[in-house]
Design a binder for these strands. Structure first.
Lengths: 195, 195
DNA sequence: TGTACATCAGTGAACGCGCGTTCACTGATGTAC
DNA sequence: TGTACATCAGTGAACGCGCGTTCACTGATGTAC
């Protein structure tokens, strides 16, 4: 009598509930039935929208890669340090999506939306690295170095291996760490002569 | 008639079977019953040895941290790049243990053996970073930078996000990446004067 | 304006499964005397 | 050498649970005429 039969935006609601479940139970521990329960619909509803469990996680990951690429693109105007901090910030703020994005074994890896969004995110990261790579350095190597650094810091932070109480402190440490890697000279004129 | 009632070294056999299961199903997907099956014993045997599922994973992680600390210690004599490569190599060779080590939510986190081994591994990494930190740099920051870099590279490699076919190629790329971060000067006399 | 019908969202019962854990037990080992 | 007994490793039946998936269905919406 209270709730209408049609939800109106159940797909979005299920994705939101899934994000909460992923944070609480981990990507592998999330269950369709728990998500349905949280969204207040029957346990079969998620399968109706996403086909199966991997379908739900794939949708979450594709959304995640899209938002991720947007966030990185927005940070592309600044330097490499700001860019890296944006990477870490996204993961902290969108933890569920971020975690699902890097669990390919749980996803439909050939999903077009997923692949497209993932490629776009990688392109943005690679472009940023190339733009700021010191002259003479292989841009690919710079890209993987940057990626490893910020991804590693993020992973350690998400598993509680970083000594920081609040998110701001984590981001401050992230900044120091990215800075310490000296991937690019602070100032182009100050490049030491390496011969 | 064939197998003796007492296995002789079932604990070790169960840990080995668990390592295989973790690689195949992931740390969360590993089940006590599958491990018992693989070891050829009754499904209740693992619980007899490890108390519960978290107990088995904790034993695997504690073993892992011990072997990890040993491996890093052995690499401490060389430079920071060799040290970092050793980190990556361990993860590739001992994938199951490594993955379990960084899934604290699945473990008995207060297990004494686990804590002791984890602290030892961290001490070895921190000492290496301190020893090679450029003068004037905060050794803590250098340690977290090194850790983020190698941990991130490892994570990306384990999730298939690194363009490399065989383990050797992965380690070669790892070396380039760690080198590119220029955490420490190649040669102490070549430190550029920063004022 | 009204009626018929296609379409789609969401339901709820049912299925079969593998799981973790418990518990009384049995088989083997080794020690005390 | 032999016997009694404590100890420990491993068993197997049983439990209750939550899960993913299927499927015939029902309720609501919207479009064609």
């Amino acid at each position: 009598v209270s709730r209408p039969y049609h939800h109106g935006d159940l797909r979005r609601a299920l994705l939101a509930a899934a994000a909460v479940a992923v944070v609480e139970q981990g990507p592998a521990g999330m269950s369709l039935r728990a998500v349905a329960r949280a969204a207040g619909v029957s346990h079969a509803a998620p399968a109706h929208h996403f086909g199966d469990k991997a379908g739900l996680l794939t949708a979450l990951a594709a959304d995640g890669f899209d938002a991720f690429a947007d966030a990185l693109e927005a940070a592309s105007a600044g330097g490499l340090v700001d860019f890296g901090v944006a990477y870490v910030r996204f993961a902290l703020e969108q933890r569920a999506r971020f975690e699902v994005m890097f669990r390919p074994e749980l996803l439909h890896q050939d999903d077009p939306a997923l692949c497209e969004a993932a490629v776009r995110a990688w392109d943005v990261l690679h472009a940023a690295a190339t733009r700021h790579a010191p002259p003479g350095r292989d841009p690919d190597v710079v890209a993987y170095t940057l990626w490893s650094l910020v991804h590693g810091f993020t992973t350690l932070a998400l598993t509680g291996n970083v000594p920081a109480t609040d998110p701001d402190a984590v981001l401050t440490l992230a900044r120091s760490v990215i800075d310490a890697a000296s991937l690019a000279p602070v100032d182009a004129d100050a490049v030491p002569d390496r011969g």
